[in-house]
Design a protein around this nucleic acid. Sequence first.
DNA 1: GTCCAGGGCCTAC
DNA 2: GTAGGCCATGGA
Length: 223
Amino acid sequence: MSDCPTIPWLRDALAAAYGPQTAWWPAESPFEVCVGAILVQNTTWRQVARAIANLKAAGALDPSAMLALPTEAMEDLVRPSGTFRQKARRLAVFCCHIAMRWDGDFAAMLAQDGATLRAELLGIWGIGEETADAIALFAAHRPAFIVDAYTTRIVRRLGLVAEGSTRHEVRRLFTGALPHDAAPMREMHALLVTHATAHCLATPRCIGCPLADRCDYRKEHAA
DNA sequence: GTCCAGGGCCTAC
DNA sequence: GTAGGCCATGGA
């Protein structure tokens, strides 16, 4: 739980390479952030953008409008993001929660303190830790650190956590070293995703990588 | 044709 | 508490 000195180094190295990540989550409203967070489960943002464009064109980027859509229509709209039946159902459950628990007042739901909001989100079927943290951080602007597949991959390659490490260990690594505030957590997460999509998924991986001195991508394959 | 992507649920042990 | 199967499209 002591501060890991590599985290500030990592942040600075990525910031130097990619610059400030302002307005990084591409969404026009907090609700759109939530929809994106659910749709991006186990897929790429490119696929999510298509599904969100469909929803926008259908006028469904609103909790009550979305809830009014027939199941099959929702499935068709979110189809490009994969696992479309599950995701249509998760969005419906989420909208239903807003309607039932908050009488449709989505802004009031997001206005809760971070811990209460996170606990409530985790109680909604279809929302796990990563999705809850994404909503808390990018829709409600509460301090929360998102541990996604990219983040885990990067810290494993840097040797900061063991192969079998849990999500909670990775979270502690960052929350212990970053200010407990939404802005630095948003910035760190955005830098990690920007870096991962630029290098960790690319081939060849390490040409021009700002972490090349300390990163060993072979480490993750030992798992 | 095969593998994998910014998860989460469910079941079995 | 955790490992494994499942969901399903689309890009590389």
